[in-house]
Design a protein around this nucleic acid. Structure first.
Length: 272
DNA sequence: CTTGGAATAT
DNA sequence: GATATTCCAA
């Protein structure tokens, strides 16, 4: 197991599912355009690409399946796989024609959120708007409103952070804490290569195949020692894969003096 | 006609 | 709480 030492952690590894060849470039060379990854693909790849050695070695701990598997290299994916798709399995009826039918509720898994944060960070808050973020994330099925909604919440999270800096990440901040945003939300208007989706530029940059090692089994991660004793940590087991956003600050812009905000910039007389 | 985003709804 | 949807002004 010594060989594990020094290997990049899961977070440090190059995110999978990044298009190595820009669409334009691909088409120019008659290369079959690489289809955008499905959220499910991302996850599958994440877990499947390389089972965590520590887990493969007959360590059943990861397979909290509990369905009594014998000592074997259990592909604890069957159970997980389905349950882990970002979109909740809805009606098996595939009649849905993109329109006319509402999509299943999106689940912002750590993987997805990671991409989101990366993109936002690379864009800089100024340019980080739903549409752009969505495009750069390059995840099939992801809609603008999906991103918009998440972004809205993400901003709230950021706001809370700058407020009280000396505040240990609460148990529920796990997800966000795992993919911290560059404290200086500097904008990178200058194209810092965003792995996930190549910008519409035709600049053939040398691309070398990179074998990404897989992904460990961070899923089993659990709030470190102690934490909040009282609050039972149900986490993904009961509800969501991870707690994304932390709890709200004890007291925030309630009737307090936050002069910067205007009473009602939005509301207008509904005279129609 | 499209998009960002706060407010609201589920 | 997490996401979705509504709604209006840019």
């Amino acid at each position: 197991m010594e060989w594990l030492v020094g290997l990049p952690s899961d977070e440090e590894l190059t995110p999978l599912s990044q298009s190595l060849i820009p669409p334009e470039l691909a088409s120019a060379f008659s290369i079959t355009p690489e289809p955008p990854r499905t959220i499910l693909d991302v996850h599958r790849a994440s877990q499947d690409s390389a089972e965590d050695p520590t887990v493969i070695e007959g360590d059943e701990s990861a397979a909290k399946d509990g369905s009594g598997e014998s000592s074997r290299k259990t592909r604890h994916l069957e159970a997980v796989e389905e349950a882990d798709s970002a979109f909740r399995t809805e009606n098996s009826n595939d009649e849905s024609s993109a329109r006319t039918h509402k999509r299943p509720r999106l689940v912002w898994t750590p993987q997805l959120h990671k991409r989101f944060v990366d993109v936002v960070a690379h864009l800089g808050i100024r340019n980080a708007v739903p549409k752009t973020i969505m495009q750069l994330m390059n995840v099939e099925g992801l809609t603008r409103e999906n991103v918009a909604s998440h972004l809205q919440k993400y901003r709230l999270y950021l706001k809370r952070m700058q407020g009280v800096s000396i505040e240990g990440p609460s148990s529920s901040d796990l997800l966000f804490a795992s993919s911290p945003v560059p404290p200086s939300l500097q904008e990178a208007s200058v194209p810092v290569p965003i792995p996930y989706a190549p910008p519409p530029a035709l600049i053939p940059m040398p691309v070398i195949g990179m074998a990404h090692h897989g992904h460990g089994a961070p899923m089993a991660m659990v709030p470190l020692n102690g934490q909040q004793s009282g609050g039972a940590y149900r986490g993904y087991e009961a509800h969501h894969p991870y707690a994304m956003f932390g709890e709200r600050p004890k007291d925030w812009p309630r009737g307090n003096n936050f002069a910067s905000m205007v009473p009602y910039p939005h509301v207008s007389p509904r005279s129609k």
